[in-house]
Amino acid sequence: MAAKTVKDTKVYQLAFSLAMQIFQLAKSFPKEETYSLTDQIRRSSRSVCICLREAYRKKIYPAHFVAKVSDSDMENSETEGWLEFALACQYISQDKYDNLYDLSNQVGKLLNHMLNNPDKY
């Protein structure tokens, strides 16, 4: 059965969970990172969900749907990059990085499925 709203999709639920975990985690980042790493990782992780909402709003237009899902995938990839910086700067543990990266990877796989099968959404 197809999801009634984007919020009912597994990809949205996982992406939202990832964004909220990152939001909580970023509270512990140093103040000097406020306008760089902290803001950027929060923005990109949230944008995954926002782009999905935009995709679903106009899913009757396949090209628009694919473009916005592609944007969501791009934001997810950016989030992974910021997670790498957080790890390298020792703001997060390897275990926390591994867990968040795994969640992001799951989101990426689901987004890839959406990109390759837009008619199923």
Rank of each mutant, 00 (worst) to 15 (best):
S47T: 09
K31N: 15
Y97P: 08
S72Q: 11
K27N: 05
D39Q: 14
M74I: 14
K96M: 10
Q13C: 10
R43S: 11
L87E: 03
R46P: 12
G81I: 06
G81R: 08
K58P: 00
E75A: 15
R53F: 06
A67V: 07
K68P: 10
V66P: 12
A88Q: 07
V107F: 00
N99L: 07
K31Q: 15
Y12R: 13
F23N: 15
Q106T: 10
V48E: 03
Q40H: 03
R53S: 04
I60C: 08
S17M: 08
Q106A: 11
I92F: 03
A15Q: 09
F65A: 10
P30H: 03
A88W: 01
L37H: 03
K109I: 01
M20G: 12
Q21T: 12
L37G: 02
E32Y: 05
Y101I: 11
F29V: 07
R43N: 14
D98Q: 00
E33M: 01
C51A: 00
P62I: 12
L18G: 03
T38N: 04
A67I: 07
R57P: 03
L87T: 01
E32I: 08
A86K: 04
N105Y: 00
E32Q: 12
Q24N: 14
V107P: 00
S17Q: 11
Y12P: 15
G108A: 06
F65E: 08
F23R: 14
A88N: 08
S17G: 09
A26Q: 03
R57V: 10
A86W: 00
S72W: 02
L83T: 07
W82D: 02
G108W: 02
A88S: 08
A86N: 03
D71T: 13
T34H: 04
A88P: 09
R42L: 07
Y61P: 14
Y91V: 04
M74N: 15
T38E: 00
L103I: 03
A63I: 15
Y35K: 15
L87A: 04
L37F: 02
K68T: 09
W82C: 01
Q94E: 12
D71A: 09
D39V: 13
Y56A: 10
M20Y: 09
S36A: 12
Y35F: 14
S17I: 00
T34L: 00
H64S: 13
S104P: 07
Q24T: 12
V66E: 08
Q90E: 05
A86Y: 01
S104A: 08
Y12T: 15
A55V: 11
Y101G: 12
N76V: 07
D95W: 01
Q90C: 05
L25D: 09
W82V: 01
Q106I: 08
R42N: 13
K96H: 07
Q106L: 10
E75Q: 15
C51P: 00
I50F: 06
